[in-house]
């Protein structure tokens, strides 16, 4: 059996360029006490691992590393768990290659 090395997404995001729009998160998680299954699935499904569980068991988002794919919108917007927009013009991820 081979052991799965853990993947550090932070290292991957470090390759990318971003212009962070401080104080203006383009995705917001609706305040909740217990997260819905949709919201919980984002802990794994988000390719930039922007979603994390806090010590109260609630799902939080930090959008700084977001690569604007829309996966969380497809999964969570319908249930009202999140509000999703694109960043303001010029902000967010700036792909050099795409």
């Amino acid at each position: 059996m081979s052991i799965e090395p853990s993947v550090r997404v932070e290292d991957k995001l470090f390759y990318n360029r971003y212009l962070v729009d401080a104080g203006r998160a383009h995705i917001k998680v609706r305040p909740h006490t217990t997260p819905s299954p949709e919201l919980l699935s984002m802990l794994k499904a988000c390719p930039a691992r922007c979603y994390e569980l806090n010590d109260k068991g609630q799902v939080e988002i930090t959008v700084d590393g977001c690569i604007e794919c829309g996966t969380c919108r497809v999964i969570c917007e319908g249930s009202g768990d999140i509000e999703w927009s694109y960043p303001r013009g010029g902000y967010g991820v700036l792909f050099k290659f795409g």
Partner: peptide
């Protein structure tokens, strides 16, 4: 996306494998 949601696989884990 539905498969990621169903299985709990991570996209970056899949990429690295």
């Amino acid at each position: 996306v539905a498969d990621f949601q169903r299985t709990g696989e991570t996209p970056y884990g899949l990429l690295d494998r």
